[in-house]
């Protein structure tokens, strides 16, 4: 039996009827066509599906869409404002923080949570803050530099 939910995603309210078993990541990708949030491992390990739920980083493969009822979600599509890239997006661009780009949306969303709680993280704090996000291309080096770039810009 489908359930009515109301969620705000990137500032827009959506009312949808969903099956209770639908995962939040599938809701975002298939119901709302927000395909910037990726499905990677599908086992809460890789972090590619990270979004913000009420401001906190969440692996959206590990929550049901019905659990997000009444809540506010930010995805990678909600990071740029008026065509202006978010400092983290700009950082990943400037510092070559990606190669294939699959992990990037999740990296950016987790890094945004980190910077919201710690505006001037050390390299170690950035690496620890991103421990739930896997990149199989870059070796993380440029990802750390990308986050540092954004941290400087956001001060």
């Amino acid at each position: 039996m489908k359930v009515q939910i109301s969620v705000t995603v990137n500032g827009t309210n959506y009312q949808r009827e969903v099956e209770p078993r639908m995962l939040l990541v599938h809701f975002l990708r298939e119901e709302l066509s927000l395909t910037g949030t990726h499905v990677g491992c599908d086992t809460s390990s890789c972090g590619a599906c990270t979004v913000h739920l009420d401001g906190k980083a969440l692996k959206s493969c590990t929550m049901l869409a019905v659990q997000a009822n009444g809540k506010s979600i930010t995805t990678i599509e909600g990071m740029a404002t008026n065509g202006q890239l978010h400092p983290l997006q700009e950082g990943f661009h400037q510092e070559h923080g990606l190669q294939c780009g699959f992990c990037t949306p999740g990296m950016i969303m987790t890094a945004a949570d980190l910077l919201a709680n710690n505006s001037d993280p050390s390299e170690q704090e950035i690496r620890e803050g991103l421990e739930g996000n896997f990149c199989r291309c870059t070796g993380y080096h440029n990802i750390v530099k990308s986050v540092q770039h954004a941290a400087k810009k956001m001060v």
Partner: peptide, 8 residues
């Protein structure tokens, strides 16, 4: 786990 897991 990690930050995301600890948040929820």
């Amino acid at each position: 786990g990690d930050v995301q897991v600890r948040n929820f």
